[in-house]
Amino acid sequence: MVRLVAQMTIRLNGDSHEIAGPLSISALLEQLEIDARRVAVELNMDVVKKSAYDSSVIKDGDEIEIVNFVGGG
């Protein structure tokens, strides 16, 4: 089976990024060297459960937010 890899543009934390896709949220986090246990991810405004990182596929034009905890009051 041939898996088609295409260049796609996503919006990641407010900025435009070119990535090869399609890819899963797990794969994106791995590429970015982000520990999945310590972040939360939104795909097109909906929070994605950690258990769904493998099965959630990012497509061209998607908007992704990756957040973590920082100091605050």
């Binding site: 990641l12 934390n13 407010g14 970015l32 060297e33 982000i34 520990d35 310590r38 972040v39 939360a40 937010e65 990756i66 957040v67 973590n68 905890f69 920082v70 100091g71 605050g72 009051g73």
Partner: peptide, 18 residues
């Protein structure tokens, strides 16, 4: 303790508060 929720800085590695 309280913590804030903010975008991960994907341009550089930062120390984790946790």
């Amino acid at each position: 303790v309280t913590v804030a929720v903010r975008r991960v800085d994907i341009s550089r590695k930062t120390e984790s508060l946790l």
